[in-house]
Simulated assay, not measured.
Amino acid sequence: MDKTKTIAALFDFDGVVMDTESQYTIYWNGVGRKYHPKIENFGLLIKGQTLSQIYDRFFKGMDAEQAEITKGLDKFESEMEYEYVPGVVEFMKELRNNGVKIAIVTSSNEKKMSNVYSSHPELKGLVDRILTAEMFTRSKPAPDCFLLGAKVFDTVPENSVVFEDSFHGLQAGKSAGMLVVGLSTTNSKEAIKDKCDVVIPDFSNFTFSDLISLLNK
C-alpha cells in the first residue's frame, strides 16, 4: 500500500450494493428460453455484462428482438425491488469516516440507475462517485472501469479494493491489479474463491480494519 495515496473502495452495484441478481436471473432466463432455448442458465451466463455486450454476443443483427428485450427490461427495472446487501450501508459510512474514497462502478446504464435513485435517493450521499456503463468503452471483464475508478480519485491500483460478485467483475478487478473481495451473493464461495483475495457472504462482519489488513498483507 502506498501511504501517500488515497485508499479507494470500488463497489460493483448489482449483487454487491443491492441484492438484485436473483431478480435479473428471472428476467434473463425468460429471455433465454424465448430466444435461445438451447442455452441453459442464460441468466447466469450474461451476469456482469452490459446490455451492449449481451446484444453483440447473443443478438447481433437482431434489431427487432433487441428492441423488444430493451422495452421489457426497462419495464422490469422500473418495477424491481432494490434492497441493500446486508451491512453495506454501515460499511460505506465507516469507510467514509476513515477517509476512504468510494465509487460504485457498474455495468448498469444511467437509465437503470435513475430507477435506483428514485427508490433510494440517499444512495448518492453514501458514495463519492457513481461510474456507469456510459463512462467506459470496454466493459468487464476488461479492467477499464476499475482503472477509471482509481483515476478519478488520483490513486493507484495497489491502494484500490474491488468488491464484486460476478465472474466478469472479479476478473476485471484482478486484471486491474487490485485487491478483490468477492461476495458470494450470486455465485457460491467455492465457485469464486480462486478468483479473488477473500470471499465474504455480505458486509455484516466486514470492517474498515479488515480492509486495511488486506491492503497491508
Score class of each variant (00 low, 15 high):
Val85Lys: 05
Glu190Lys: 15
Met80Ile: 12
Val152Gly: 05
Lys193His: 04
Glu83Cys: 11
Met178Ser: 02
His168Glu: 03
Arg57Asp: 14
Met80Gly: 06
His36Ile: 05
Glu83Ile: 01
Pro157Gln: 04
Leu214Ser: 13
Tyr55Pro: 00
Lys124His: 11
Asp128Trp: 04
Ser160Val: 04
Phe146Ser: 03
Leu126Cys: 06
Asp14Arg: 13
His120Gly: 08
Gly30Ser: 13
Phe167Gly: 02
Arg138Ser: 08
Glu158Asp: 12
Glu190Gln: 10
Thr186Ser: 04
Pro143Lys: 03
Arg33Asp: 15
Ile26Asp: 09
Cys196Phe: 00
Lys140Tyr: 14
Ser118Asn: 10
Pro37Ile: 11
Leu148Ser: 13
Arg57Ser: 06
Met18Gly: 04
Phe58Thr: 07
Leu51Tyr: 06
Gly61Glu: 14
Lys174Leu: 02
Leu10Asn: 02
Lys47Phe: 03
Lys174Pro: 02
Glu94Asn: 12
Leu211Arg: 01
Gln171Gly: 08
Ala67Ile: 04
Cys145Trp: 03
Leu147Ala: 04
Gly169Leu: 09
Cys145Asn: 10
Ile46Met: 01
Met92Gln: 05
Thr185Ile: 01
Ala142Met: 08
Phe136Cys: 09
Met18Val: 07
Gln66Val: 10
Pro141Asp: 14
Glu65Asn: 09
Asn97Pro: 05
Val17Ser: 00
Lys217Asn: 13
Ala103Gln: 03
Ser107Glu: 06
Leu10His: 02
Asn29Trp: 10
Leu211Lys: 07
Ser213Trp: 14
Arg33Glu: 13
Gln66Arg: 15
Tyr55Asn: 00
Met62Leu: 14
Val199Met: 01
Gly30Val: 08
Phe203Glu: 02
Pro143Asn: 15
Thr4Trp: 10
Ile46Gly: 04
Tyr24Gly: 03
Ile7Met: 15
Asn159Gln: 09
Asn187Pro: 05
Asp14Val: 08
Met113Tyr: 15
Phe167Asp: 00
Phe58His: 13
Val162Met: 01
Ser118Leu: 05
Lys195Ser: 11
Ala150Pro: 04
Phe153Thr: 00
Phe59Lys: 13
Ala8Gly: 00
Glu134Cys: 06
Ile200Lys: 01
His168Leu: 00
Asp165Phe: 14
Gly15Leu: 06
Pro37Ala: 01
Glu94Trp: 01
Ser166Ala: 11
Phe208Ile: 05
Glu110Tyr: 10
Tyr24Ile: 07
Thr20Phe: 09
Pro143Ile: 07
His168Lys: 09
Glu134Leu: 02
Asp202His: 08
Ile54Ala: 05
Glu77Gly: 07
Thr185Lys: 13
Lys195Thr: 06
Gly87Gln: 03
Asp165Ile: 03
Ala191Trp: 05
Tyr35Cys: 01
Phe136Val: 03
Asn98Cys: 07
Phe13Trp: 07
Cys145Ile: 02
Pro141Val: 04
Gly149Ser: 11
Leu73Lys: 13
Val127Asp: 08
Ile102Met: 11
Val105Lys: 02
Lys124Asn: 11
Asn216Met: 14
Lys34His: 12
Ile26Glu: 14
Leu214Val: 09
Ser209Phe: 09
Asp154Pro: 03
Glu110Gly: 12
Ala133Asn: 08
Phe11Val: 09
Asp194Ala: 09
Val127Ile: 09
Ser114Ile: 03
Glu94Phe: 04
